[in-house]
Design a protein around this nucleic acid. Structure first.
Lengths: 138, 138
DNA sequence: TATTATTATTACTAATATGGTAGTTTTAAT
DNA sequence: ATTAAAACTACCATATTAGTAATAATAATA
């Protein structure tokens, strides 16, 4: 039950965009350096983030990335969902057809409850909250 | 962020022991058949469960497995912790020395909070609860 | 229009985790 | 002695994770 590096790195990338929301386009290269994440690897994570409409980008000189929504409109759930695909702890919760035992499986009910709890936490935290936390820490 | 098959299969194994708590030793083979889990694979999961003192076993004819504690004393957290090792979503939460950015990393605070939430849910569910759920369903 | 700095795309790779299978040994009841 | 079970040991195939590398497309600007 580990959070993937995709999700963790992607969240940190989004946080950096949030911290520089008013600066216009930010270079991926700069974020990679500041967050100590491989530039090439980060450039893979950015693809689904852009496709989902959470960020937008400009090519060429003076290009870069920027958030496509306001800080309070982007939750951790949005970000992690995009980077991990299915947020569910167990496949059968979202997709019951993968297991014939679903109807008689009590443990599934628990995993479902746990899924809901996790989603609740993740959707309650926005980029705005992270920025506030960051500012308070300094 | 998936729950491993180890954790899922192991939980179902423990639930079967709980459902047959008063029957004495239960054969792993029978549980494997009923739960449709590979017998050999299940026999690997049973090793840490025994080592942790959650179950005990007898060899030879009329051998088998049984719970080593009462139903209300075994939580899902106990089981999953044994089978997955570290319950933490992110390594740095339990083991800060793995990352030099820990002191300045705001996202880590969120992962820590999420860890606590998950632990709370898992430690609130006992085998007794699962048995009650199962009985109510029938 | 040539240059430069950036994102975008594609292809590959090494390491690790997952989900097993197979065979042998030990143990204990009958 | 036989039998039925757990215990132990050694593999193995596949998927996932976490990258690296090289190249193409794009857009500002000198």
């Amino acid at each position: 039950m580990r959070l993937s590096t995709r999700a963790r790195y992607g969240t940190r990338f989004m946080l950096e965009l949030a911290l520089n929301f008013d600066q216009g386009n930010i270079f991926l290269k700069d974020i990679a350096k500041k967050e100590e994440i491989s530039e090439k690897y980060l450039s893979q994570l950015v693809i689904p983030l852009k496709a989902s409409g959470l960020i937008s980008s400009s090519r060429g000189a003076h290009g870069g990335y920027r958030l496509a929504k306001s800080l309070s409109q982007i939750t951790l759930k949005d970000i992690i969902q995009v980077l991990e695909g299915n947020l569910s702890l167990v496949e059968c919760v979202k997709n019951p057809s993968v297991c014939s035992r679903v109807s008689k499986c009590v443990t599934r009910d628990i995993w479902e409850k746990l899924d809901e709890t996790i989603s609740g936490v993740l959707s309650s935290v926005t980029l705005e909250d992270l920025v506030n936390l960051q500012n308070k820490a300094n």
